[in-house]
């Protein structure tokens, strides 16, 4: 049976991890390579790196970081942040990334999804969708935001998710901006709405504060995988303690 994936997410700026607690047993907790290795040994199923560098020099550094990580850890790597063109995607894949995550660039230029999927295969193209709940709506509705959650796009999350899958996206990384950072649970209604409507895997993101939140995202939200940042970086949960909890509650996980 296909197991559910637990995926740590690390933000990287100019080649350094900017989120993350002070890890014991690590010489340099800001080194993405060392953190990747830490999570690899802890039993993470994949890793997501988001490059939040503002400069092109910072992005060049990210390519080197990906090269170094792929020499050390033998599990799937997704890289996102600032990827705008086929060349950007190709560069990351050649550096050793398995998947690239598109967000703002996909909204501004949806053809990039199709082109990327045609050239590299759908499995390489993850579309990251950041959303906020539309409070005024009677029906549950969410709006897509771009530019790191700063700009409303006017797009309906469900319609956009269906469109990116039709264009060739192989996976959706779905983040609730409302829940993100609050550690009070994922928006499971959002995750379920999208997951049930599309044929590709959905990674739930935003809001994890306890192992039960991850369980709920997988069961109530029908997610295929869960992304976790703060719960791993700031709390006292390890990947293995989270997986133990999930396994005890009947979720198939890789131990």
């Amino acid at each position: 049976m296909l197991t559910k994936r637990v995926i740590p997410c690390l933000d990287v700026k100019d080649g350094r991890v900017v989120k993350g607690r002070s890890f014991i047993n690590l010489c340099d907790a800001g080194d993405p390579v060392e953190l990747a290795d830490f999570y690899y040994k802890e039993g993470a199923d994949e890793l997501v790196f988001l490059d939040i560098s503002a400069s092109s020099e910072g992005r060049d550094t990210m390519v080197e970081v990906v090269e170094r990580i792929s020499e050390k850890v033998f599990m799937p790597l997704t890289v996102g942040g600032g990827l705008r063109s086929i060349d950007n995607i190709r560069r990351m894949l050649l550096a050793g990334a398995d998947k690239t995550s598109l967000n703002t660039a996909a909204v501004l230029n949806p053809d990039l999804i199709r082109e990327g999927a045609d050239k590299f295969g759908s499995q390489c193209i993850v579309v990251a969708i950041d959303v906020r709940r539309v409070v005024a709506s009677k029906e549950p509705k969410w709006e897509v935001y771009t530019h790191g959650g700063q700009k409303p796009s006017g797009l309906d999350a469900l319609e956009w998710a269906k469109k990116v899958v039709a264009l060739g996206a192989g996976e959706i990384l779905l983040t609730s901006m409302d829940a993100d950072g609050h550690q009070s649970g994922y928006d499971n209604e959002l995750t379920r709405t999208i997951s049930e409507a599309i044929s590709v895997p959905v990674i739930a993101s935003g809001g994890a504060g306890s192992p039960k939140d991850l369980y709920d995202a997988l069961v109530l939200g029908k997610a295929d995988a869960v992304l976790a940042a703060s719960i791993l970086h700031y709390n006292n949960y390890t990947i293995s303690s989270i997986k133990d909890y999930l396994e005890k509650h009947g979720i198939p996980v890789r131990i």
């Binding site: 049976m1 296909l2 197991t3 559910k4 994936r5 199923d45 759908s122 499995q123 192989g170 996976e171 044929s199 590709v200 895997p201 295929d224 995988a225 890789r254």
Partner: peptide
Amino acid sequence: KVPHMGWNQVKQKKAHPIFEGIPDEAD
């Protein structure tokens, strides 16, 4: 969901040295 993406068990149907040291149904 397609692609089939993630870790899944590999059930060995043949005894073969390629599986040396690898538990049956490993992910």
